[in-house]
Design a protein around this nucleic acid. Structure first.
Lengths: 101, 101
DNA sequence: ACTTACGGTAAGCTAATACTTACCGTTATC
DNA sequence: GATAACGGTAAGTATTAGCTTACCGTAAGT
């Protein structure tokens, strides 16, 4: 089993997925529009969106025949708290090292 | 050419590299010790360290025959500011959308 | 000086993952 | 109800990226 922040980091570890996320910053978009301009086909985009969805970085909502994707705050919050915790613990360890000398 | 935050996200997009970074939270370590316990060989670790170094997530320092690796604040700061900026812009866009209605 | 410890690099292999084509289901439109 | 638009899924291919083995250089110890 993979923790969420791991899934989020994996999801961010691909340029195409990052491009998708960047596009979604300006607001929700249907899959077709998301795929436009990208150097990959629409099905590829669908597959990336699935990964992003599992990582809770995007949410989707069907509207008629279109399916709108938007950024999901949950994934970003989780990712951020992981990085913060990570760095805090590193500083903690560093301080401890200094004092022990 | 790749921007730094892209390199950092790529670097974080691998479990072994994340494991290395987590080990380094408790302080600097030589390559041999870093490799111990991991399910991969030492050369593999060296290669991962190279990626992490280019992403400015670790620094290295030779001491005798050993080479100590430690976390590098630069990469983390850069990554954090990217994520913050990313999310800020998303909120900005969201606000603008609401007001325009 | 010889030997051992440490770790980087290259070449080649393997495994993971991104991508495409083909297909199908659903919703809307005529 | 037929057709078109939209998008998800499956199967197979291709590319990427991680891993190993082999090798070399440098620094320390004997």
């Amino acid at each position: 089993m993979k923790t969420y922040h791991q899934q989020q980091l994996d999801a961010f570890g691909d340029v195409t997925r990052r491009a998708l996320l960047e596009r979604l910053r300006s607001g929700p978009l249907p899959v077709g529009e998301l795929a436009e301009g990208l150097p990959v086909t629409r099905p590829a985009v669908s597959q990336h969106l699935r990964v992003l969805k599992h990582a809770q970085l995007v949410r989707d909502e069907a509207r008629g025949t279109r399916r709108y994707y938007r950024l999901d705050p949950r994934g970003f919050a989780s990712l951020r708290s992981y990085l913060d915790r990570f760095w805090d613990e590193a500083l903690e360890a560093f301080k401890a090292k200094v004092e022990e000398k």
